[in-house]
Write a protein that binds this DNA or RNA. Structure first.
Lengths: 208, 208
DNA sequence: CCTTCCGGCAAACAGTTGTTTACTGACTCC
DNA sequence: GGAGTCAGTAAACAACTGTTTGCCGGAAGG
């Protein structure tokens, strides 16, 4: 077998593994990981409970796998936003729009991250934290390369990046819990104004 | 019986009710509400499972009660911070210090709020959200009364208040997960710089 | 003092849980 | 084509869950 053409064996295994992940993600929309049962997941997939152990050691293990899946898709969004080279105001609009679109496209993933970031399963908490730190580093690198950051210490750039990432997560969480389109509009509007204020503070950081 | 001297009957009931709340809060340090069992709580308290129903309908009901208890203590902190009348830099230092102190004093309460804010129990999520909104309103009122907010629209003041409250919650969450005193120092330092940047943006909001 | 109230108890209920065991049968590979 | 690999199975395990029932014993209150 070649590198991208898996044998029938491995292909089937990958398939049920992803079915388990999907089922888990779906069930996690209405509960948290520490209460998600192994049998609950296998029942949805239509597979024997014992089969679970062929793919994951734990539910915590499955949770960690979901972290990668969930934040992997966000990575694309962040990179796209950072690549923007337009006016500040347009970058802000584009960012908020991108976040809104992402939440609408992958609501379960976003909800999972928001829910388990401070959830009851240590391994998953730490996986999310580590991944968000990597987001922060990535954003910091991009910010540091901009002329607006001339004269900034690396530490200050990193703290600004952290503020952006935190704000992104909070905005995404708010979108997730939004009741209707009207509330989503209100959230987007607030997020834009907050970003504007932050970027204003950024511009005057080296004053005085 | 007078209004503040409860009968022996009611006093005992209140006592076990608070024992249930305490036990729940303690158990929630290592799991989330949606996986916390009724029997688990009563076992810790040393009371029969059926006794639980004399005080709460649900675990969700107990959770909602915990929200009030947890955010009630924070209310005091926020009011104290808002009452400050010193220089901006001192207000920032005082705020971060107050948050750090509060987290050290009531770690379980703070952890509960962080964990269940986006947790799997709708009623609790909504209770926390509503209470945080009230915090936002309170902060907005205080900000609006400052001379720095002259010329600001009510909406803009409210969005700034929201930014402050979100930042407070994120900082508290970070403190909770901090490993050692060195990491706590780092978190406090970052939080201070972020608040400084935000207040810088605030000062220039009406420019241009 | 005697009745009413009521917080807590013990027991039983039917379901559910995670994990282990020995197994089957289709795919892999020489 | 025959031996070996291994994802998925069925069954059994003890332990646990939330909830209901009838009952007890001491406080409340006339």
């Amino acid at each position: 077998m070649s590198s991208n053409t898996l044998g029938v064996r491995q292909a089937q295994k990958r398939k049920t593994r992803e079915a388990l992940l999907d089922a888990g993600l779906r069930l996690l929309e209405e509960q948290s990981l520490s209460s998600l049962g192994l049998r609950e997941v296998t029942r949805v997939v239509g597979v024997a409970p014992a089969a679970f152990y062929r793919h994951f050691r734990d539910m915590a293990d499955l949770g960690v796998a979901l972290v990668g899946e969930s934040l992997g898709s966000l990575h694309v969004v962040v990179r796209a936003v950072l690549a923007e080279r337009s006016e500040a105001e347009e970058v802000i609009d584009g960012t908020v729009e991108a976040v809104a679109a992402h939440v609408e496209l992958h609501p379960a993933h976003v909800r999972f991250i928001a829910r388990e970031r401070h959830g009851g399963v240590r391994a998953v908490r730490e996986a999310i934290g580590a991944e968000l730190d990597r987001f922060g580093d990535e954003v910091a690198e991009a910010l540091g390369a901009q002329e607006l950051s001339a004269g900034w210490s690396a530490e200050d750039v990193r703290m600004l990046a952290g503020l952006y990432v935190d704000h992104l997560v909070m905005t995404a969480s708010a979108f997730i819990e939004a009741a209707g389109p009207e509330e989503r509009r209100r959230i987007a509007d607030t997020a834009r104004r907050q970003l504007r204020l932050i970027s204003l503070g950024r511009r005057h950081w080296l004053d005085g």
